[in-house]
Structure formats: structure tokens, C-alpha cells
Amino acid sequence: MSPASYQVPAPLGKILSRLPAYPGSVLFAAGLNLALARHLPADTLRLLDGRKLRIQVRDAGVAFDFIWRDGSFSAARHGDDIALTISASAHDFFLVAQRKEDPDTLFFSRRLVMEGDTELGLLVKNTLDAIDLSVFSPGNFLAAHLPGRAARAGKSSNMVD
């Protein structure tokens, strides 16, 4: 099976689609706060403020609704007032996150779909494209999230000569 055709197996997608949406959105928002929020520019956060976004993983049958409000991402209940929905397969999201696939290529091949506020979609895409991926390396991540000595130990243990 080629990477472009990889899909979450249908039986697993069927099970995942039956899970309640809100707990997944809570975990997703917590992950965004932990890994991403500190790297987003203040002007972007101002434009995101109060706007409900949805990430929909089509083949897994799940969607995560979240909002930037009061200085952090938080889960939002599923509803119709979504400003922007970004949907793709789990594998395509994974490829975009690793920068092994360009979101524009996926968009024009209809593997990534944006619905709603187009301007907001471009803001999100361009903001994520501008983030230096090295901030997500294990050493840098530990240094940013662990206090003092533990952070230094984590950072030094991930160095390769």
C-alpha cells in the first residue's frame, strides 16, 4: 500500500467515530497548548480569538473542535458555529505535520479540504508554515516544559555527535 493511499482501517474508524467528541477535543486543545501555543505570534492569536475551529480526520471518523480564548486553546462543544473546518486523512495530517507533504499540494489534489472562512484558513496555514520545526525536537521541547536540571538533562541526552 502506497503512503498516499494509506487510510485508517474502516473497522477502527467505525469504532472511533462512535466515541464522544468532547473528551477528544479537550485532549487536542491540551496538546495545542503544550506544543504550539507559545510559538504562535500575538497578531495571529488576536485574529483567532473567539473563533471556533475544527480539525476533522475523515478516515478515523473523528473531529476536534477548539477555540482560542483567554490566552489558551480550549475544547469547544460540537456545533454549527464553526469558523473553519480543516479535514484530511490521518496520514495526510501526519505528512503535513512532518513537512513531508505541502498543504497546498494536498489542497489542490483535494486530499485536504478547508471549509468556512478562507482568510482564516490561509492565516492558519501560513502561521504553521512559518514555525521552525526544531522547536518540537525532544531536547527543545523538554527544555521548554521541564524546570531546571531535568530540562538540561533531557536536552543533553538527545544530542548526537
Results as ranks from 00 to 15, higher is better:
residue 3 P to A: 09
residue 27 L to V: 01
residue 41 P to N: 12
residue 86 I to P: 06
residue 138 P to N: 12
residue 15 I to W: 15
residue 49 D to K: 01
residue 54 R to E: 03
residue 145 H to P: 07
residue 115 E to F: 10
residue 7 Q to A: 15
residue 7 Q to Y: 10
residue 100 K to W: 01
residue 24 G to I: 05
residue 2 S to H: 12
residue 116 G to H: 09
residue 125 K to M: 05
residue 69 R to F: 00
residue 26 V to S: 01
residue 122 L to T: 08
residue 31 G to Q: 00
residue 116 G to T: 04
residue 107 F to R: 02
residue 88 A to P: 07
residue 89 S to T: 15
residue 131 I to A: 05
residue 5 S to A: 11
residue 21 A to D: 11
residue 5 S to F: 15
residue 81 D to H: 12
residue 64 F to P: 04
residue 159 M to N: 10
residue 79 G to A: 06
residue 111 R to P: 09
residue 71 G to T: 04
residue 25 S to L: 00
residue 102 D to T: 07
residue 46 R to D: 15
residue 17 S to Q: 14
residue 14 K to C: 11
residue 155 K to C: 00
residue 126 N to I: 11
residue 127 T to F: 00
residue 2 S to L: 15
residue 15 I to V: 14
residue 9 P to L: 14
residue 47 L to F: 10
residue 147 P to C: 02
residue 45 L to E: 13
residue 2 S to N: 06
residue 4 A to V: 13
residue 87 S to R: 11
residue 128 L to D: 03
residue 50 G to S: 06
residue 72 S to M: 06
residue 138 P to V: 10
residue 144 A to R: 14
residue 116 G to F: 02
residue 61 G to A: 07
residue 45 L to N: 06
residue 161 D to W: 03
residue 141 F to L: 15
residue 140 N to I: 00
residue 151 A to P: 12
residue 20 P to L: 04
residue 102 D to P: 11
residue 106 L to N: 13
residue 8 V to I: 14
residue 143 A to T: 08
residue 67 I to H: 09
residue 67 I to T: 12
residue 109 S to F: 02
residue 100 K to N: 03
residue 144 A to C: 09
residue 112 L to V: 06
residue 153 A to F: 00
residue 137 S to M: 13
residue 158 N to R: 13
residue 121 G to K: 05
residue 12 L to N: 03
residue 7 Q to C: 13
residue 6 Y to E: 11
residue 13 G to Q: 15
residue 144 A to V: 09
residue 69 R to N: 03
residue 66 F to S: 03
residue 11 P to M: 07
residue 27 L to K: 00
residue 117 D to A: 08
residue 8 V to F: 03
residue 25 S to M: 06
residue 96 V to M: 14
residue 35 A to T: 12
residue 99 R to T: 09
residue 39 H to K: 07
residue 149 R to M: 06
residue 132 D to N: 13
residue 40 L to H: 12
residue 48 L to G: 10
residue 90 A to C: 04
residue 137 S to I: 02
residue 95 L to Q: 12
residue 104 D to S: 05
residue 19 L to N: 08
residue 35 A to K: 05
residue 79 G to R: 09
residue 149 R to F: 08
residue 1 M to V: 14
residue 24 G to P: 14
residue 92 D to T: 03
residue 53 L to H: 05
residue 116 G to A: 01
residue 133 L to H: 08
residue 96 V to P: 11
residue 50 G to V: 08
residue 12 L to T: 12
residue 161 D to I: 01
residue 134 S to Y: 06
residue 53 L to P: 07
residue 125 K to T: 13
residue 126 N to P: 13
residue 30 A to E: 12
residue 81 D to F: 05
residue 48 L to K: 06
residue 25 S to V: 10
residue 134 S to V: 11
residue 137 S to Q: 13
residue 55 I to V: 10
residue 116 G to V: 04
residue 85 T to Q: 14
residue 77 R to Y: 01
residue 130 A to P: 14
residue 155 K to I: 01
residue 56 Q to L: 04
residue 123 L to P: 01
residue 108 F to D: 10
residue 49 D to W: 10
residue 118 T to M: 09
residue 43 D to V: 00
residue 158 N to V: 09
residue 84 L to K: 08
residue 11 P to C: 07
residue 10 A to T: 08
residue 137 S to Y: 12
residue 109 S to C: 02
residue 135 V to N: 02
residue 121 G to W: 04
residue 34 L to W: 08
residue 137 S to F: 08
residue 11 P to L: 08
residue 117 D to Y: 02
residue 57 V to Q: 04
residue 103 P to D: 05
residue 26 V to N: 03
residue 116 G to I: 03
